[in-house]
Amino acid sequence: MSDNPLRRFPGTGTAALAFFVFLYAPVVVLIALSFNSGRSSTLWEGFTFDWYGVVLDNPDILRAAKNSLIVGTISTVLSTMLATLAAIGLDRARFRGMNAVNSVIALPLVVPEIVTAVATLIFFLSIGLKLGLGTVILAHVVFCIPFAYLPIKARLEGMPIAYREAAADLYANEWQTFRRVTLPLLWPGVIAGAMLAFITSLDDFVITYFVAGPGASTLPIYIFASLRMGVTPEVNAISSLMLVVSILFVSVSAWIGRRSK
């Protein structure tokens, strides 16, 4: 630790401090303001839970939250299943173009989201899909796959082939081997992948904004729309709630990953 040569450069500590302040100070302020009893975003007027109550009483917010949950759950389940199948299908496969296939699966991670958003919208319109919750789910399943795929693939690659051979040696056919050995050993990767997929879906704004029809607003869309009326403590409260959910999911996924090492 202490023999890191970077430590000896003057200003390293200051730079690191500045980095953390810029990154986290706004988040801390946002959370603090969600408990501010006044409507001002600059003046502290006292502590209150009222804004959380307001949030939970607002039917528009509840509808958006429900949409987010529906989209998140369905796209997580579907993308995780597809990612698991892809990882197992590509495991130890040695064919020409295998690298290409792997790259294509991970491609959505590097393609600018706005490009995907426009392309997806044009595609949906051109095949005559009516924009709504269905199109949002479809789009989310697709862009969540790489997030689910990477941890599952990593887990599978770290699993010695001997376990599967031992199962086959002990009279388990392919399906029994998958059910009784491969899947249980892969499970932490699957859970981690699903968590990542869920928070990615929960958080997505750009693609959702393009392909959501009327009535299909998710929480990020609602927040963006309500900002036109200025930053309200209400928005701070929803954002804080989303932050809590995200942190929860990431922690659980990290914990599962560590525990099964």
């Binding site: 010695p160 001997a162 376990y163 051979e165 031992a166 199962a167 040696d169 002990l170 050995v181 050993l185």
Partner: peptide, 10 residues
């Protein structure tokens, strides 16, 4: 049946 070098116990 096989006894694997790495044992490969589940």
């Amino acid at each position: 049946n096989t006894v694997f070098q790495s044992y490969a116990l589940f």
